[in-house]
Design a protein around this nucleic acid. Structure first.
Length: 655
RNA sequence: GCCCGAAUAGCUCAGUUGGCCAGAGCGCUGCUCUUGUAAAGCAGAUGUCGUGGGUUCGAAUCCCACUUCGGGCUCCA
């Protein structure tokens, strides 16, 4: 028979040949590397028999598909190890995930995994790998499958779900890595161990081994809080020892950027225990960076035609009844304070108060679009287990804008917002964006179909006019209107959801907001919510990680430190500091009894953009020695040319 | 909120099976050194061992509760 290879060539094989036979026919190296095959677009085991005219690709470890298979097969090995080590344990799902895999278990008697268990499991896995156990596929009817999995209730539940016997559970985890359709497939490694799985898998366990078990955690069955909590183990797996080591190294490097670690090292801010969970205090070094960010944001909003407002941190509960927050999000709000005229709450959002501002006095169509902006601090009662440094915090400041406009203005406003948001983000060194358009979920939303269509079309059209590709997320919109979410990619390739532009038909209705149109009719404005940084705190944390603490010159808490070589040069150094200060730069003297080398080291560890060393030569010639962050030392730089250099470097880029 | 860990000096951490005044490095203070590009030398101070209970002749160490933090799950207007 004749099969076709990915490069378009064809190859003659004996009838009844398998994908493994094809790999052997192509070459011994490929035969050795082969993990699975892709036949007519479907991933399959190497043992699969080929047919005449099949399109066949052999998958090797280094590819994405190969790595995925290695990880998935490693998960099976871990399951076998755990079931061997904990008699009576049962297992649920064990998919490959980005960079690794996990498997969920339930241990007998409600036992839990402990960190120490990882080493034991690891050792057992290596024994299984050493045994070169084959992965043998078989297929059973649902009935036989249920019988085979008689001791494993979670596997049975999966079978019932995929065969439609239990439709209620269908909405839950993606079980596609386990089974599909009416025929249930299994992979058997030994007489004692068989796992239900669609596959494909590596030929035998000996192909695995470059893995590391990482952590234990709890995980709800089917991802739902009202289901039992299972015991999950995460691991990572690669195609070579080198790749594994590199991955672990990358994790370590990412750890060094951790904003919580850098915040301590650079004395930016802290989370004192006495303050309570999820609340931060900003130290002078962190506060100056924050102030620079906020000043920049304010300047851009001024230029962008926004009007600034301020609103209080507390409000009467009636306000949040009107806005609907108490109906929908009471659990996420701090509990009320009893006052003489009712219950007061910390505000979880600024929009109700901005609506009050719109609602005072009569608005004309001539007033629109009305763009209100506030750096508004809000408080949300995040559940204890969800707090995470600055990235998930209970008190934070939104750079919150609410724009009230007419239907006719909607497209222009959204277009303007997109341009504005991207321009500001570029100033902070982000230039890789992805866009998501979330659309209506019919089952839970307010407003007319007409209004939704109008707003959804306007959001999509604005993206198109800007030439921005986007993905549609069906049914992901908030109940009150569709939205665009903007994700950014940081310096080490991680993506963060950042800005959002949301249309809202709900609040103008609830607050009965109107404007008088040109024909004298009262009409309801559309409201756009726009968060750019989202939360100043979270954005700051993200920036710390993005820059790895090396704030660009315009944001650095201290831009220049001046180091006199000896006490004799102290006067000159102070003069340099003063001249820099007069020119609007943040400069400090670093004179102490420490030797120069030590002071340079301290300045470098503080990630100062420019370390200036001044000695006899400089005093005589009016120069400085510039030791720039990440660059080469340059002696004898004219002060004026250093100033030009610093000015150029301190300009905000990307506008 | 749920599962697993952790909490010792300003920071990073050590502290063996419970046993005299609880340790190191960095930092800090003082003195000496007066320095040309990533750690000078000497001396000194610093702790209710997260908080509160309990077990014990004796607790940083064992047990319980709470607080806070870390990794996940869930949640995220």
């Amino acid at each position: 028979m004749l099969v076709r290879l990915p490069d378009g060539s064809e190859r003659e094989l004996d009838d009844g040949s398998s994908a493994a036979d094809l790999a052997s026919a192509i070459g011994p190296r490929l035969a050795k590397d082969a993990l699975i095959a892709v036949v007519d677009g479907e991933e399959t085991d190497l043992g699969t028999k080929l047919h005449e005219g099949a399109e066949v690709a052999i998958v090797t470890p280094g590819s994405d598909r190969g790595l995925h298979t290695l990880r998935h097969s490693t998960a099976h090995v871990m399951a076998q190890a755990v079931l061997n080590l904990w008699p009576g344990a049962t297992f649920a799902i064990g998919p490959a995930i980005e960079n690794g895999f996990y498997y969920d278990f339930e241990l007998p008697g409600g036992a839990t995994f402990h960190d120490d268990d990882l080493a034991t499991i690891d050792a057992e896995m290596r024994r299984i790998i050493g045994a070169r156990q084959p992965f043998v596929r078989s297929e059973l009817s649902a009935e036989s499958a249920l019988e085979l999995m008689a001791d494993h209730p979670y596997k049975q539940a999966i079978i019932r779900t995929v065969t439609g016997a239990d439709s209620d559970a269908a909405a839950g985890n993606d079980l596609s890595s386990e089974v599909s359709g009416d025929v249930i497939s299994f992979y058997r490694n030994t007489d004692d161990f068989v796992d239900m799985c669609v596959g494909p898998h590596v030929p035998h366990t000996g192909r695995l081994g470059h893995f590391a078990l990482q952590r234990v955690s709890g995980a709800y069955w089917r991802g739902s809080e009202d289901q039992p909590m299972l015991q999950r183990i995460y691991g990572t797996a690669w195609d070579s020892k080198k790749a594994l080591k590199e991955h672990l190294h990358r994790l370590e490097e990412a750890g060094k950027r951790d904003h919580r670690k850098l915040a301590t090292e650079l004395d930016l801010l802290s989370f004192p225990t006495e303050l309570g969970g999820g609340l931060a205090v900003w130290h002078p070094k962190g506060a100056i960076v924050r102030k620079l960010m906020e000043d920049y944001s304010r300047q851009r909003h001024t230029d962008g035609g926004y009007e600034f407002v301020y609103t209080p941190h507390l409000a009467n509960g009636k306000l949040f009844e009107t806005s609907g927050h108490l109906d929908f999000y009471a659990e996420g709000m701090y509990p009320p304070m009893e006052m003489d005229n009712g219950e007061y709450y910390m505000k979880p959002m600024n929009c109700p108060m901005h609506c009050l501002i719109f609602g005072t006095g009569q608005r004309s169509y001539r007033d629109l679009p009305l763009r209100l902006f506030e750096l508004g601090t809000v408080y949300r009662y995040e559940r204890a287990g969800t707090l995470h440094g600055l990235l998930r915090i209970r008190g934070f400041t939104q750079d919150d804008s609410h724009i009230y406009c007419t239907n006719d203005q909607l497209l222009d406003e959204i277009g303007g917002l997109l341009h504005f948001v991207l321009s500001v983000l570029r100033a902070f060194g982000f230039d890789d964006f992805t866009f998501n358009l979330s659309t209506r979920d019919q089952s839970k939303s307010v407003g007319t179909a007409e209004a939704w269509d109008l707003a959804t079309d306007a959001l999509a059209e604005a993206l198109r006019l800007h030439g921005l590709d986007y993905e549609v997320r069906e049914g992901e919109a908030a109940f009150y209107g569709p939205k665009i979410d903007i994700d950014v990619r940081d310096a080490i390739g991680r993506t963060w959801q950042l800005s959002t532009i949301q249309a809202d038909f709900n609040l103008p209705e609830r607050f009965d907001l109107t404007y008088v149109d040109s024909d004298g009719e009262r009409r309801r404005p559309i409201m756009l919510h726009r968060a750019l940084f989202g939360s100043i705190e979270r954005f700051f944390g993200l920036l710390v990680e993005h820059y790895a603490g090396n704030f660009p010159a315009w944001l650095a808490p201290v831009q220049v430190q001046v180091l006199p070589v000896a006490d004799a040069h102290r006067g000159y150094a102070i003069d340099i500091v003063d001249r820099l200060g007069s020119a609007g730069f943040r400069a400090e003297l670093l004179a102490s009894s420490d030797p120069l080398g030590k002071r340079i080291r301290n300045a470098k560890m503080a990630k100062i953009p420019h370390v200036l060393v001044v000695g006899d030569d400089d005093v005589a010639a009016g120069t400085v020695g510039d030791n720039p962050r990440g660059g080469e030392v340059e002696r004898g730089v004219e002060f004026s040319s250093f100033l030009d250099r610093l000015r150029a470097e301190s300009r905000v880029s990307g506008e």
